[in-house]
Amino acid sequence: MPSPFEPDALRATVEVLAAIDRPSASPGEAQAAEWIAEHLAALGCRVQVDEELAYTGYARSLAGQTAVGAAGALLARSPLPNRRRLGGVIALAAAAGIVEEVSNGPQVFRKLTMRRRATQNVIGETGDPAADRTLIVLAHHDAASTGRIFDQRAQRALAGRFPRAVERTDTSLPLWWPVVAGPALGAAGAVSGHRGLARTGAVLALASLAAFVDIERSPTVPGANDNLTAVATLVAVATALRASPVRGLRVLLVSCGAEESLQGGIRAFARRHFSDLDPATTRVLNIDTVGSPRLVMLEGEGPFVMEDYADPRWRDRVAAVAERCAIPLRRGLRARVSTDSVIPSRAGYPTATLMSLDETKAISNYHLMSDTAANVDYTTVADAARLVDAVARDLAEG
């Protein structure tokens, strides 16, 4: 029987699902969820599909907030004190709203302005159902919209010009900061009476608005690396655990929907299941975009405030298993984007995230139409899948 970690086996999963148009909370996402559920069930998993509600994306909501921020910044340029103060209040409210939404706060603005649609979380239970300890392996099966802002040429040019600086940098670029800078500068201009600050804030806010409108109007990427490589990992691990079962560990293979709408699926999973999962006996291993050439483990994430994941001892253990299995794994990196890991980590679950990067420390084909099955590095995907399987077996031993 061929190994489930062979590149051809991993590629087969990615190719089938990449052909489905899978925006968050869409019929295509539901079709992918159905395929995943059927395949996990065929591999002996006890499968549950949770029908949940989630938003269809992030661009529309953030376009609205940047438009509000731009309006506030423009008002803040007024020579009339009352208008200037009103503009400052509006701009400051927009800045605060953007920060809380992107940082996985209550997401008040989208609740007031957007409707939710059906999404599906697929849960495949394998391993020992009577075990006291649980390993949750996370993936997501929706795909993102592209947009001009995701063009990687500038980052690659920077890496080519300053390769040593890029290699030494272990925190990704703060892509969300300029989005908040627009309304924030508008508010600062209102307080200081500096019309130039307010004007700069308005320009930045309008540029962000244009970027979000472009994303909202752009097609959905195939999402092979982000994040069908993780779904392929779930299928491979289910296959391996069926062929060689473990005792003493329950394994939940969870593929969430609506991750690309800022963690819609995992939020619903948390509401439904966290009360039954003890943080003292549960570990979370999130797999996200593992199809670039270099496998890495994140220590934390945060678009604005960096949050290291709960319990570094868990990440130490994952790294120790990788070393024992001779799987190359780069540590020490932190991301200025959000992943599904932030939700279980904030709830106190020991959390680790496996990702991958290319030689410029970019995620290969991130949110680009070139994120196809043909452009995935399946050697890295195989390493990630082997590592997840090895970690599960290590946990089962005690």
Results as ranks from 00 to 15, higher is better:
148 R>S: 07
114 M>I: 04
96 A>W: 03
210 A>F: 03
220 T>R: 00
172 S>C: 09
108 V>F: 14
113 T>G: 13
165 A>E: 00
204 L>K: 02
141 H>F: 12
138 L>C: 08
126 T>G: 02
166 V>Q: 03
189 G>K: 00
115 R>Y: 13
93 A>F: 04
207 A>K: 05
139 A>C: 04
113 T>V: 09
202 A>I: 04
134 T>S: 12
180 V>D: 02
194 H>K: 14
205 A>V: 06
143 A>K: 07
190 A>M: 10
92 L>E: 12
115 R>A: 15
102 V>D: 01
104 N>W: 15
183 P>N: 05
121 N>D: 06
163 P>H: 10
222 P>K: 00
209 L>R: 11
161 R>V: 09
136 I>N: 02
168 R>G: 10
125 E>T: 12
215 I>G: 03
124 G>Q: 06
145 S>C: 10
165 A>S: 02
137 V>L: 04
111 K>N: 14
199 R>T: 15
196 G>W: 01
140 H>W: 01
170 D>C: 03
230 A>G: 14
227 N>C: 09
118 A>Q: 15
169 T>V: 13
150 F>E: 01
133 R>M: 05
116 R>G: 14
159 A>H: 06
135 L>N: 09
154 A>H: 11
215 I>W: 08
200 T>I: 15
95 A>S: 07
203 V>M: 00
114 M>Q: 06
132 D>F: 02
209 L>W: 14
150 F>S: 01
141 H>I: 08
182 G>H: 03
156 R>N: 13
194 H>Y: 14
189 G>P: 01
134 T>A: 08
193 G>E: 00
221 V>N: 02
143 A>V: 13
131 A>F: 12
150 F>K: 01
148 R>D: 12
93 A>I: 11
175 L>R: 13
126 T>L: 01
142 D>S: 03
223 G>L: 10
173 L>K: 12
213 V>M: 07
122 V>H: 04
155 Q>T: 15
142 D>N: 09
180 V>P: 01
206 L>K: 14
108 V>R: 08
131 A>H: 10
139 A>S: 13
145 S>T: 10
